[in-house]
């Protein structure tokens, strides 16, 4: 059930990871220093959760337009986003109330390893609100 959002493919570059970390004021070394990331058991630097959150928010507002207002974003991380990978965001509208102007969208961001992120976004549009949930079934 529910309308599928067009997928959005995001190349996971080192630049995106570092730019996202700094824009979110997250100076944890694992998000910019590959050597220290390896010492902590990671094969490389990886995207921070704030950037993932920002990308999920952008994906949903890109679809609903500038009048949409995010009310809630809840995400869970799985497979990390490492440089050189790509993430494909897909979404499906789970609830839509045109009268109240609300929607719930379920969103999944899959990379080459697995699902990087699954989550649910609730928003209002125009006079009302929409919720978008990111699910494993979103691309089916």
């Amino acid at each position: 059930m529910g309308t599928a959002l067009p997928p959005l493919e995001i190349p996971i570059t080192r630049t995106l990871i570092v730019a996202g970390a700094i824009a979110s004021r997250d100076y944890q070394d694992v998000h910019h220093d590959a050597e220290l990331a390896r010492q902590k058991g990671s094969p490389d630097i990886f995207m921070n959760i704030l950037t993932t959150n920002g990308l999920v928010g952008r994906y949903v507002t890109d679809y609903f337009g500038p009048t949409a207002e995010l009310r809630k974003v809840a995400i869970r991380l799985g497979a990390p986003n490492y440089p050189g990978d790509r993430m494909v965001l897909t979404g499906r509208i789970e609830e839509l109330d045109d009268e109240r102007g609300t929607a719930t969208v379920r969103v999944v961001g899959a990379n080459g390893i697995g699902n990087h992120v699954t989550g649910t976004v609730t928003l209002t549009f125009a006079e009302a609100t929409v919720t978008v949930t990111l699910t494993d079934e979103a691309d089916s």
Binding site: N48, I49, L50, N53, K72, A74, I75
Partner: peptide, 13 residues
């Protein structure tokens, strides 16, 4: 337990 990684983020606006 010296390493840290974020796994979930839930925000209400």
């Amino acid at each position: 337990c010296v390493s840290i990684v974020a796994t979930d983020c839930e925000q209400e606006y």
